[in-house]
Design a protein around this nucleic acid. Structure first.
Lengths: 341, 341
DNA sequence: TTGTATGCGTTATCAA
DNA sequence: TTGATAACGCATACAA
């Protein structure tokens, strides 16, 4: 490996000067500078981040801990985050939590061992103990997707509004005549599931519909998908639903597959609305009426908060909620009103 | 920050002993070991990867350079790779190439600066100069998706067979009566595009169809999507095609959107077959007849080759081709034969 | 304008 | 069974 000393030797200067040339950190005689740059070129020297990190205490690396399994937006989120942080001169270290608290703990430990300067975490259910460790180490954290109820120093959060948009999905189904409206949720441990479910109940109540616990089914439990059972249960009810609110992307795919097994088609045999949109939702049939999350903005927003905090660690904790947008298409069954894009 | 010396002080031993306890690298008196473990617990010590890396020369980190923009399988590939390498005790450092040779260069430099132990690269068109630098530094590389024509020491590659499967897509369309079969390709700079295009021509010729250059349109050029134009050109032809072979996932989405603008529906107004499958292809309509890549196997295979090479750097270069599978569904227009899953 | 010396946290060598 | 010491590559305080 070619080190700074090698460059220094070739350029006939000290390592100090080489360092200063590379980092533009003090005035250097143009002549000397040229010699150094030439030596760098000649030797093919590339600065060693490890050495620098050990010395400076910063790795210019940001850790991302999230589950790739359950998050259909995984790629988009990673991309959005990567773009923002690389623009700021950081690299992205990835750790998959597999939607499992134990793996999540290990993932965060791993990122800490690599001395990431900050972390983005899309937490599974139980992130609290992990967070405490991070707060104690004073490492900047932004939680994505989940807004914690308790504020902690150094921990920011960004997510979308879940409750009211879900209620509005129910509103819409009620307005077009449905009275038996079911919901299939994602994992009940997830904060977002809880909020969306609460929105569902709000919708049921404010539209004067009968509150029926049987109409709520869980589509994901841990790493297990149970949408098949959920759909079967709903269809086996004495008075089955005529419409379903699907809690997220994963549930949507599962539910649609299950309905297909029962030879049912949306919106003819079942009205469907979903939380979470698909990028190709306009092209394939049925065109889903869905609440669309601003994924790019979530990623960019998360990084922006992180960079702010990196610049000033004593910033008060901030929690941001972005508004999702309703894409009104055809799976809900009122084709005339379609405005979706 | 709590270091090994802190632990040593608390445990009343030397830092050497602490290190040996942590790494189980020499015999330690059980009593001493207990004291050390207790001190670790008490101090909340976490070993510092930077210090270790500087000393040992290995970072236990693998770099992944690929484009998130153009690769619809991005998430799946990242996930597959992450899973394999984390099992082997490595972490994943991500660098987005944005499908641009300049950004790709920077991405690789960046990964090198972070001293990744090895790299997985999904190369854009011009990866050769980058590769030379890596070979020179003797850092293990596996190219994913693209099989280079020239072998290089220390560079493995894994991808799918592109030519024959594409030819078979043409076969199928010809057999069900199409004689004007077009193709919309991905970026012409990509190796896979070249191979698939070659397969297309093979198909045209071996089915005795007229060779017509107008039936080949480019759907992606660099970071620009031109499927709209491609479709418009095809439809404007004196004798328009009745079937289209779509070169990859991105092209498929673009083509279907464009066809929709022209109020055309598959397979009624246009038979469609695609290279690249969608995970939800069975649920939404039209159900695409598509060549499906074994994405998980690609990721796992790439990592497996890398680990082999990490164990023995002098292994001869290996190039692996995996067979994709044809998912015969409905968009090609011969519904009776559907076997897709 | 440039150079010397030191230490970041760890592990390997050598000695006890 | 354990410890003292040096070195990995770099950036900085200090000296010249």
């Amino acid at each position: 490996m070619v080190t700074m000393r090698d460059v220094a030797r070739v350029a006939q200067v000290s390592a100090t000067t080489v360092s200063h040339v590379i980092n533009k950190t003090r005035k250097v005689d143009p002549e000397t500078e040229r010699a150094v740059l030439e030596a760098i070129e000649a030797t093919g020297y590339l600065s060693d981040g490890i050495g620098r990190s050990l010395r400076t205490g910063t790795t210019q690396t940001i850790g991302l801990a999230m589950s790739a399994i359950s998050n259909p937006y995984f790629g988009t989120v990673v991309h959005a985050i990567e773009r923002s942080i690389s623009r700021a001169g950081y690299s992205l270290l990835l750790a998959d939590t597999h939607d499992d608290p134990v793996r999540e703990r290990r993932a965060v430990r791993d990122l800490l061992s690599h001395r990431v300067d900050a972390m983005v975490i899309a937490p599974s259910g139980e992130a609290d103990s992990v967070l405490d460790a991070l707060v104690q180490r004073r490492i900047p954290v932004v939680l994505i997707d989940r807004i914690p109820t308790r504020e902690r120093p150094g921990v920011d959060a960004i997510g979308v509004v879940n409750e009211e948009p879900t209620a509005r999905l129910v509103d819409h189904l009620a307005q077009i005549g449905h009275s038996r409206i079911a919901t299939i949720t994602s994992d009940p441990m997830l904060e977002t599931t809880i909020e969306r479910l609460s929105g569902y109940w709000n919708g049921i109540e404010r539209n004067g519909l009968t509150r029926d616990e049987d109409l709520v089914q869980v589509g994901v439990r841990g790493s297990e998908e149970t949408t098949d059972d959920a759909v079967a249960t709903l269809l086996g009810l004495p008075e089955p639903p005529t419409a379903i609110v699907m809690g997220n992307n994963q549930v949507t795919i599962g539910t649609m597959a299950a309905l297909q097994h029962h030879h049912m088609e949306a919106p003819r045999d079942m009205a469907l609305v979903a939380f979470d949109d698909f990028p190709w939702a306009n092209i394939f049939r049925p065109r889903l009426t869905a609440v669309s999350q601003p994924v790019d903005e979530l990623g960019a927003g998360a990084v922006s908060m992180l960079l702010d905090r990196l610049a000033d660690r004593d910033l008060p904790p901030r929690h941001r909620r972005l508004e999702p947008t309703l894409k009104h298409r055809e799976s809900c069954g009122c084709t005339g009103l379609s405005t979706g894009t």
